[in-house]
Design a protein around this nucleic acid. Structure first.
Lengths: 329, 329
DNA sequence: ATGAAAGCGCTAACAC
DNA sequence: GTGTTAGCGCTTTCAT
């Protein structure tokens, strides 16, 4: 049985109010009283019960981060950025994983509800805010990250998906490619839509007709990247491929390696996200780099500001990607 | 302001006790009363306050998982295994990250304390249980995972590190190598010690003298793998290298690629953990595969069992690794 | 078949 | 400079 504030007060011969104030430094307490309290705390191995504290004060100094795929280092890199700023401000981070399933996401959100958290950062798997109705009730500030559900008017942090893909595809076109495959994530997500829009725009601006058969979408996971690449290789005559997420890129590369595709001679490839392994591939992979850590930092900063000042309406913050040219195209 | 049980009781014209029992299905309530309560809950968008619930019932249906490095997919894969079993039993998972820093680990543990969690799974960065004194106070069951602090008598889940490395090094020796480099993680960790023990044993059994200069240890991160590889390449005449963690392996590969080492002609390499990119390297990497998902499942199952039955002393569960031979050696 | 009330551990308003 | 006390939202015992 953990000891409570009462035990400490008893042992130190003071009131629980005094103990509370010593613990929180929230009003003056004489040095000798303080010393007695600290001694008692130590002897009893006292840790404040943060559940009771949260219940009473209606704040937990904890923020939640709900991600769609724990296996995707894009999100864990973001988490590191978030943690970096939270730590400095005395906040804790707890993570949830929706596994790209709406039902699981709702379940996690219901758990987050009930003032367990003072704020939430979410990369939602929902396509529209309607789907989150009833679980995002405005009890705490929310910052949307990466993918933004339709109708979202809260704060949101994202990258210039459309432009990023426009630029990459334009490079491919300039190299002479016209049959360019495109693999996207779940088609309900804003990121997928924006990236495909950029793809279309680049082709159109270059006067190349868009063939829908060259565009494939799936669930953002590795297996799916593998499968969609297989389809494109078998069913189309593409000469270049852009994969819009790092997990799917790994899947694509696996298929290509198994079938001994030579890059860039047989196929040019551009992936998303830049991790150590991108450079280690054979050949080194050209990628669209996303500022993960910075996305996390930005989201955390915006959220903390919003916690301090809940009013006024949400804003959009767009960070920039960077195209990194290596030998795969 | 979220609505409370009182609001629901008022609206439904029943007592709060009845609402509670309806919510939890914990005693008989007539169908019509139930219906009225459900209606009120819906209209008020009522979500039970889990903080209050935890405070009162002294359980949270939540378990914590403290990991040393969010960027290391070994741990996120484990987290997926944990989540897989927790979900089925109605438990939630919250993650913490110690970033391999003892101070941060203690901080996270202090937050976990205070019955916010019903149990803990931890891959500790501490070398001995002494360092965790005062924060692991026995208020909830604990399962240690992967690395086991000295003096630990609680449940622990690990792999056969010693044997795994013994086997891999023996394979290298059989190929004719005698000057074999070894890169380990933090030297205070059990995993590092066991892996290095396996390395020494393999050499000794083969009648090869162990040179300490061929053994290097660092902080388990990518940069460190890079740096230690540089040292070994510049300062020794090794012909083979074993790296005992996937992050450090990426660092090692980066150095080797930058300096155009040819594998396995110039250097044979064996890494730890098997991810998609291991196969995609040039050449495909031989690795010691660890059963991550299964480790997570096992840990969660052991923990839940322990929550049900807290007595009796901790046991050790050892899962097996698997050597995967590819072309890098 | 349902209600009244105690109390989990803490914070903060009020009192002296 | 410190103590008393109400009450956060809930579960659960004891009533009836």
């Amino acid at each position: 049985m953990p000891s409570s504030i009462k035990d400490v007060a008893g042992k130190a011969g003071v009131s629980i109010a005094t103990v509370s104030h010593v613990v929180n430094g929230t009003r003056y307490v004489s040095e000798e009283t303080k010393a007695r309290v600290y001694k008692a705390m130590k002897e009893l191995q006292y840790t404040p019960n943060s559940v009771a504290r949260s219940l009473r004060s209606r704040k937990s100094k904890t923020i939640g981060f709900l991600i769609p795929d724990l296996a995707n280092t894009f999100y864990t890199s973001i988490a590191e950025g978030i943690q970096h700023v939270l730590r400095q401000k005395g906040y804790q981070l707890i993570l949830g994983n929706s596994n790209e399933e709406l039902e699981l996401e709702l379940q996690q959100l219901r758990m987050f509800n009930s003032q367990l958290i003072d704020g939430l950062i979410i990369a939602s798997t929902a396509s529209s805010m309607n789907e989150l109705e009833g679980v995002l009730k405005g009890d705490y500030p929310v910052v949307h990250l990466d993918r933004i559900p339709q109708g979202c008017e809260q704060d949101r942090i994202l990258v210039n998906n459309d432009e990023a893909v426009y630029e990459a595809v334009s490079e491919l076109i300039q190299k002479g490619h016209s049959r360019i495959g495109m693999i996207g994530g779940l088609d309900r997500l804003s990121t997928t839509k924006e990236r495909i829009a950029g793809y279309r725009r680049a082709l159109e601006d270059a006067g190349i007709a868009v063939k829908d058969s060259l565009i494939r979408m799936g669930n953002s996971k590795q297996d799916c990247g593998y499968e969609l690449t297989r389809q494109l290789c078998e069913e189309t005559d593409m000469t270049a491929l852009l994969v819009s997420n790092n997990q799917m890129t790994l899947g694509a590369l696996t298929y290509l390696k198994e079938h001994r595709y030579r890059m860039p001679e047989q196929l040019s490839l551009i992936g998303f996200d830049d991790y150590a392994w991108s450079f280690l591939m054979d050949p080194p992979l050209s990628v669209i780099h996303q500022p993960c850590f910075e996305l996390g930092e930005k989201a955390a900063n915006v959220l903390l500001e919003r916690i301090g000042q809940p009013l006024s309406k949400g804003k959009e913050y767009m960070l920039r990607t960077m195209f990194i040219r290596r030998d795969s195209f």
